[in-house]
Amino acid sequence: MKKLINDPQDVLKDALLGVEAAHPQLRVDHVNRIIYRANPKADGKVALLSGGGSGHEPLHGGFVGVGMLDAACAGEVFTSPTPDQMQEATKVIDRGAGVLHIVKNYTGDVMNFEMAGELAGAEGVEVATVVTDDDVAVQDSTWTAGRRGVGVTVLLEKIVGAAAEEGRDLAAVTALANKVNESGRSMGMALTSCTVPAAGKPTFELPDDMMEIGVGIHGEPGRHRVPLAGAHEIAEQLVEPILHDLDFTGAPSIVMLNGMGASPLIELYLMYGEVARLLDKAGVKVARSLVGNYITSLDMAGCSVTVLKADDEILKLWDAPVNTSGLRWGL
């Protein structure tokens, strides 16, 4: 295992020291492993909390700041954070208008946030929850834990963060969050496995001439192992199931070409070119796009595509100012 780390058990602790040192606009609670805005938002506005296992950076800590999240709870690598962390963060960020929990649909995340919501509710904080589940790689979702929450989480945190900043109430913010989640679809692939630091070796072995289609963001094997193909074919294998699952024509779309962590930007742009061409051919009108590493899987090489069916309201919220370490414009 070759990583820029010290003791594999200390990866999260050590990384949070770096986050704190790098970003004066953030405050890090090292005991509870929470990343906050240094300057809380105004009283009376809905606050946004997300969190999840580490190893997906910039998600979620990189999206804390004006226009997006109020705080993010960091779990161990690929392991949901715990209810006490979430409860503490919920209490701290509540400005009296309630807190929206943004939860990716994994059994662990859902259960821990559920417990946290119960605890915070008992303490008088109004909590609402949105569970993202946009991964079309998960089929037969009635026979599974449901679809995984992946790329749409990033777009949702931006869009709903802007709405909260505007001063909308918890019910409106939650409704918007659900609408965004329902309007987005994602599909990912891997050229290589990642290596969980505490495990010390790749989660799976992938021969040089094979790739995994339909992976999530936890280094899990995907739905199919298929022969390695060129960018053009890979793009087809990602875009096709997305377009098959939802009709994106007739509305402006926001598209994210996301890197899994170890794929360089030149490859991500190349993939985006392929994806953009396919979407264009299918009559999908891309209004906004994002190319880069936004929701990653440690040192996995690969990428995912997310397409979000937007409207004028969503585009306006998308364009609103945001100032986080992972996404920034207008500020």
Binding site: G75, T79, T82, P83, D84, G108, M111, M115
Partner: peptide, 12 residues
């Protein structure tokens, strides 16, 4: 366990 594990196994 709830406050130190996380994931699915922590709450369970």
């Amino acid at each position: 366990l709830v406050t130190s594990v996380g994931g699915a196994s922590g709450p369970l």
